[in-house]
Design a binder for these strands. Structure first.
Lengths: 110, 110
DNA sequence: GAATCATATAAGTGTGTGCTTATGTGTTGT
DNA sequence: ACAACACATAAGCACACACTTATATGATTC
């Protein structure tokens, strides 16, 4: 595995280690939106949100798109793919508890 | 989702956020072994290893089994299943980059 | 039962992380 | 041009984290 992937892998897991960032990511998974809208109902300062988004962006979990003076954020599949790739390395250990995985597979395999 | 899963989810991502712990986990994925053997070729102190294993154990990523005065460690599929479960929530975003996932699926679906 | 070995825990320390307040940058509207 | 707005960055601070050394626990061997 090349160095760059390992480095990003590190960024990904570190990004997801924070519960606030996981919440932000989950929110974005429901549909892209700008930073202000993300803050709604979250009790988080504007700089804090900006910093979290920066971390998620560096981890390829989120990507941005300028739209006028707003910046629209959305889930970046790249990061998720890298997690899946990491997880795939350990598939030998999956069969012991496949309930969640079965669902995952059924939805993918069409 | 129940609180306990969220808490463990947090433990999992925090555990994997450390590169040394990911290395330990990867080593164990190659086959269970005791803490002393894990240290071989790793340049890590005995207490540090013990602490890392404790974190991985709390995250359900690793489980222990006393064998005399040794403690054998091995991958706990529980943690991996929880990651897969977390990842499954975002499967809507997978199709955009499925190369790694395709492999994952092919190996599972038998 | 005393010495030894494998591992765990305790306490202390330097560094990283997530927050804060303050300010900078870039865009829209008047 | 300038005010208002959305967001980013800078600097500082409290706390978490990964390490260290020292010591404790628990199991084997002599």
């Amino acid at each position: 595995m090349c160095l760059c992937v390992v480095v990003i892998e590190n960024d990904i897991f570190r990004a997801l280690a924070d519960p606030t960032r996981r919440t932000i990511f989950e929110k974005l998974a429901g549909g892209g939106m700008n930073a202000s809208k993300l803050r709604e109902g979250m009790e988080i300062s504007q700089p804090a949100m900006s910093q979290h988004l920066s971390v998620l962006r560096n981890a390829r979990l989120v990507r941005e798109e300028r739209q006028g003076r707003f910046v629209n954020y959305e889930v970046d599949p790249e990061g998720l793919a890298l997690i899946a790739q990491w997880l795939a390395k350990y598939r030998a250990y999956w069969p012991e508890r496949v309930d969640a995985l079965k669902i995952m597979l059924k939805d993918m395999d069409q």
